[in-house]
Design a protein around this nucleic acid. Structure first.
Lengths: 166, 166
DNA sequence: GAACAAAATTTGCCATTGCATCGTTTTCAC
DNA sequence: GTGAAAACGATGCAATGGCAAATTTTGTTC
């Protein structure tokens, strides 16, 4: 069968992703944070308080991993985690003030990396590229999900009405 | 700082990558293969025999991981690994006949997944998108490398002259 | 309203993997 | 030619992460 692995979508996607992730991780190491930790905090910053399973779905990280990660960050005083009053099953995770400060401090790093990656593109090219990434992700949306990719990311807690469109 | 995490390049890239990787892994599980195992075999199929470090660089997987992976696949009779005659440091990894058969069998799976992902795009859009992915990867090429991303992927063993342009 | 099923999270256990170290072989400088 | 440095790969150890079982709460059915 004629198939060029190094020209395949999964390969090119993975390569770019790993490279960026690596770079990001290096920068985050100074703060004793892992990539998933950053991602969780970034989601909370943008979307407001979240349930565990929603956090997991948003950042495509296994829910048990997120659970432990939250435990760690709570111990460090960056996140809060509390059972809901009206629904004792679920948990409401949010940034503390310290967490909010820290994630704010990290934003420029993210912006840096983004700028390096997209440096050679025009704004419209970047927009198209990102749209394509969303589209590709969407093209797999209907398929059977592994444990890592949780079911419908609905029902955000979202106390202060933040805009949910991705 | 104004920054929309869920619209950032790393986020969108990672999400798509994880999703595809997950799907692929599920399919590979039937064959008792992990994603890195598949990637290694796919590289060998396309590029011919490789050194360990080149394999590692091609698939952006830590070299120690590749070392163990090769051990496993060799034990299963899918790969061969032998010291070079003229350079005792390096090792030459190749597919066995069984390995060649297996990877050939897996190609349609890869093609499937690629087709699902790109189904809603025209050929020229796909081509542009892939070019962009390569470009983005290239934009980070000069940066300090983590252990995972090995130094220059040069000096392929490449016995039967295969084309190396990515 | 009791029993049962489903949802949400946590945790125990095990496999995977990353980092640092080590052993070997080759290359380089003098 | 000798010694130092670099290249290459393998491995010990610790940490990370995944899966599945356990726990708690909510929802449903009869």
């Amino acid at each position: 069968m004629q198939y060029r692995f190094t020209n395949s979508l999964p390969y090119l996607l993975n390569r770019a992703d790993v490279r960026i992730g690596d770079l990001f991780s290096q920068r985050l190491a100074e703060y004793d944070l892992t990539l998933p930790m950053y991602q969780a905090m970034a989601v909370l910053r943008q979307e407001g308080p979240q349930r565990l399973s929603d956090l997991s779905a948003m950042i495509t990280v296994e829910i048990s991993t997120v659970s432990r990660l939250v435990t760690t960050l709570k111990r460090r005083g960056l996140l809060s985690r509390e059972r809901l009053e009206d629904n004792g099953r679920t948990v409401r995770i949010d940034l503390t003030e310290a967490g909010r400060q820290l994630i704010e401090e990290l934003m420029p790093i993210a912006a840096d990396i983004e700028a390096i990656g997209t440096g050679t593109f025009s704004d419209s090219e970047i927009a198209w590229f990102k749209k394509a990434l969303r589209q590709i992700y969407g093209n797999f949306a209907h398929m059977e999900k592994s444990p890592r990719v949780q079911s419908g990311v609905g029902d955000f807690i979202n106390v202060q009405g933040s805009n949910n469109q991705l």
